[in-house]
Amino acid sequence: MIEIDAVGKHYGSFQVLSECSTRVNKGEVVVVCGPSGSGKSTLIKCVNGLEPFQSGSITVNGVSVGDRKTNLPKLRAGIGMVFQNFELYPHMSVLANICLAQIKVLKRSRNKAETRARSLLDRVGLAEQAGKYPGQLSGGQQQRVAIARALAMDPVAMLFDEPTSALDPEMIKEVLDVMVGLAQDGMTMMVVTHEMGFARKVANRVVFMDQGRIVEDAPTAEFFVQPKTGRARLFMSKILQH
């Protein structure tokens, strides 16, 4: 589904990503972790072309992201993305947030879009909040709306860029629960996160990044029991200590 092949990116002389290769197969959940500044957020933004890259290639569903001829808006419409800071549109109601791209990009009728939006809100447990504005919701609720907004486009895959990093601890669970539900329904997911409990529970593979490189890419069980590299072991010992 998502193939990342030898991707490299630099800002001037600063190498952000080098020789990154991995893949996410259909129905797979891949967790990307690593210390801050390791390039994991940049890598996931390259997948839907929000960040350009200079070398290598990424294909999603057979479409090359870096190709100049690729219709990026069309490609992105089929890939859901959830951001660290939710990025709901503050000037629109929750319902309008979820309907906007359905109507403007997929050209669905308002009726159809609203029906879809309401069923998704129900799925993320926010059926009662349709008429509210994002500013009236808690962080966890906002992030669940953001997930619903992405799902409304019927994406072939979902990208999560640190979806729980900006949340208070007690709200992390409600967002992770929705994500676990998605994973169990067979959604193809690439998730940048430090939530190792989530990784252990639903990830097929864990990718560990450091200084712009993928230093470890292993099945989840293997990664947790016996990280191959010293860098990954050190990282794990630090975040699993408590």
Partner: peptide, 27 residues
């Protein structure tokens, strides 16, 4: 308007014109 808003609009498949007209300029 925070830069992430444009990224969010693009991520749902909007083109530049739609993102500006529907998301950025109203704010």
């Amino acid at each position: 308007v925070p830069r992430g808003q444009l990224a969010a609009a693009y991520a749902t498949g909007m083109n530049y014109g739609q993102a500006m007209r529907l998301v950025i300029l109203p704010q």
